[in-house]
Amino acid sequence: MVWAESVPRVWRERVKKYRLLGGKCLKCGSVVYPYRPACPYCGHEELQPLELSRRGRVINFTIIRHPPTGFVGKEPYVVAIVELEDGARVLAQLTDVKPEDVKIGLEVEAVFRKYREQASNGVIEYGIKFRPV
């Protein structure tokens, strides 16, 4: 899996990933994560960069019991769709909570955590997870 072992790939996304950098469409008002050059809803090409709210709620979740390479041994873990207070939706792991205690509507906040370790070079990939408030 060559794509999993790239240092520049992790480095290049660091601001968007670590600071929850999204964008607000100046035409339709949609708030998206991560920041990007064109609005996926209306196609407009002016998005204002926006550090997103670090609070939100779980609108859906699953428990991964058979993980992909890179996450083997970490299962079971929860992957959720979190809707932030400013309306952007983020897919992320939940942390500091037992999978059986997760419910739709759970109020959560962003925390900075480790996601995976690149097998061949030891580079650790960090990102935002969410924990119950």
Partner: peptide, 19 residues
């Protein structure tokens, strides 16, 4: 499982460990 997940956004979705 990892290869099938590449149908999604590697940097922002597959990165989370979802299958």
């Amino acid at each position: 499982t990892a290869a099938l997940a590449t149908a999604e956004d590697q940097d922002y979705v597959v990165f989370t460990g979802t299958s």
